[in-house]
Design a protein around this nucleic acid. Structure first.
Length: 173
DNA sequence: AAGAAGATTCGCT
DNA sequence: GCGAATCTTCTTA
């Protein structure tokens, strides 16, 4: 959930990837830097970074302080504030609003200012409770990485049209 | 010190 | 389908 001024934007998380401690594809692997320091916070904080000169990416920290591990949010199903999301994303296609990690951040108006915020507190960005049960979670390898490629750490709602990649394709790499 | 790659997306061909 | 956009970090000279 996201609060920007008077507006509220929310969505249901339908796709994630895990980057556990010691994973060579994780940003914490080479130790703390100016960019990844919030990844080393306690569980439930935001780690936001900028990549490829174009996209912000949102992660949720997942370990005890100092460890450095997180969960990448790759897609949400838009629920509230859909018109605002369309403006932020400059598209009218509901399916494309938050399908993909960079798009998700853009749709929720997330940038480096939200790096390090507590996602379990009453702030500008937080995690809410489920509004609907999940039918079934599918697991595949992670997308877009070149190290530790075989690990089955991507999780998404089976059959959801809001997951990234071509609709419902099971990607392998 | 400089170049390449990276948890991506968009627009043009 | 391919290349550009263009920030941070890692690798190699």
């Amino acid at each position: 959930m996201r609060k920007t001024g008077r507006n509220r934007i929310s969505g249901r998380i339908v796709e994630t990837e895990a980057y556990p401690p010691g994973d060579r594809s994780g940003h914490a692997y080479h130790g703390r830097t100016a960019r990844n320091q919030s990844l080393f916070l306690d569980r439930g904080f935001a780690y936001v970074y900028f990549i490829y000169g174009t996209s912000y990416i949102l992660n949720v920290t997942a370990e005890e302080p100092g460890v450095g591990a997180g969960v990448l949010l790759r897609a949400v199903e838009p629920l509230e504030g859909i018109n605002l999301m369309k403006r932020l994303r400059k598209t009218d296609k509901l399916i494309d609003l938050a399908r993909g990690p960079g798009r998700l951040a853009a749709a929720l108006q997330i940038d480096q200012r939200l790096d390090g915020v507590d996602l379990c507190a009453n702030g500008p960005l937080w995690l809410g409770t489920a509004v609907r049960e999940t039918a079934h979670i599918s697991t595949t390898v992670r997308i877009g990485i070149t190290r530790e490629v075989g690990r089955p750490l991507r999780f998404f709602e089976a059959g959801s049209p809001f997951v990234s990649g071509p609709p419902n394709e099971i990607r392998s790499r």
